[in-house]
Design a protein around this nucleic acid. Structure first.
Lengths: 170, 170
DNA sequence: AGTTTAAGTCAGTGATGTTGACATTCCAAG
DNA sequence: CTTGGAATGTCAACATCACTGACTTAAACT
């Protein structure tokens, strides 16, 4: 099924880009690119005995300061036990602060400390630098296409979280 | 540094796509999209008590039949001990066959069995289906840009492996 | 008072990765 | 031909991380 041969379409729309071969190249490109995408932060984190989970937590706490634990869980898509282990070490190490909610005292609101901000900056500088180089290489039109495909690849609930974050920004 | 303001360029080349804000949106898009990218295979693998490592091994053995363990290691970027555990279970389960090399008996050449091919097809069908939907949504020009940015994001040695695989194909 | 919700914890399991030791095979220098 | 080093692959022990499930605590809701 779906061998992707052009077929008898009159609209002049080539469907060659939907062949299994093209799709597989896209899949492999995604695999290798993601390794590059995480390589620089991973190097920094390894020295601190942290993992990607710590990076993700720091990133999104910086992105949405004061977020609750539950909120963070739904963004990260991990279990609370898993997140809790990460948060515990980050709080113990003085990178994250957890404040009891004023309106609802059951909630804990998360913030980066000064130290936390420093590590966040170090991590995202490294990641942005690679991203910037790739963007510059590929050019603005390519970047637009890149974003378009990525957004189409998300699950519905991820896209909701993503869009929500975009709205919050700036 | 590099706040990405347009700046005094006369060439009409807008550099707005290189702002930190744009880069961060790209980073987050990459994060959420990769989750979608792996979600379908992950669901299938979970039922079989396999993980992503098994998927990767199966994918690349299918892609380059007869590859040696060492070769696979350089593509996957893990330690040989880690890969070995995965291979051992796949061989024990009858999905992969390991043949002693004829010219160099130290080497083991890896092949998928019929069962292995069946699982590979199941996994890549699921992944391709999502990819196809995303590609179709985004359109051919977007796909071209997507690929361009991904390739620019790879490390040099990953790009080498990626290009080599592309050459091998069909 | 009873139920629900938010957060945190403990125990057990499984996948993944690492280091270290080891066996086999190849190859080249003596 | 022999011997020692290098390459390839395997096995064992250990650490990390994430998950499920059950439970506790505290606060909010009804």
């Amino acid at each position: 099924m779906s061998d992707g041969r052009p077929g008898p379409f009159g609209g002049g729309e080539s469907l060659l880009f939907l062949t299994d071969e093209q799709l597989r190249q896209g899949i492999e490109a995604m695999f290798f690119a993601y390794r590059g995408f995480t390589a620089d932060p991973d190097r920094i984190l390894a020295k601190l005995a942290y993992g990607r989970a710590h990076h993700r937590a720091i990133h999104f706490i910086n992105r949405a300061p004061g977020t609750t634990v539950n909120n963070l869980l739904s963004i990260l898509g991990v279990t609370k036990q898993s997140l809790n282990r990460v948060l515990r070490t980050l709080i113990a190490d003085g990178l994250v602060e957890s404040r009891v909610g004023t309106v609802d005292k059951r909630e804990r609101h998360l913030f980066l400390t000064e130290q936390g901000h420093a590590l966040e900056a170090q991590l995202s500088d490294a990641q942005r630098e690679r991203m910037r180089a790739a963007y510059k290489d590929a050019g603005p039109e390519a970047v637009q296409g890149f974003r378009k495909v990525l957004e189409a690849m998300m699950d519905a609930d991820m896209r909701r979280a993503y869009v929500k974050l975009r709205e919050t920004s700036s």
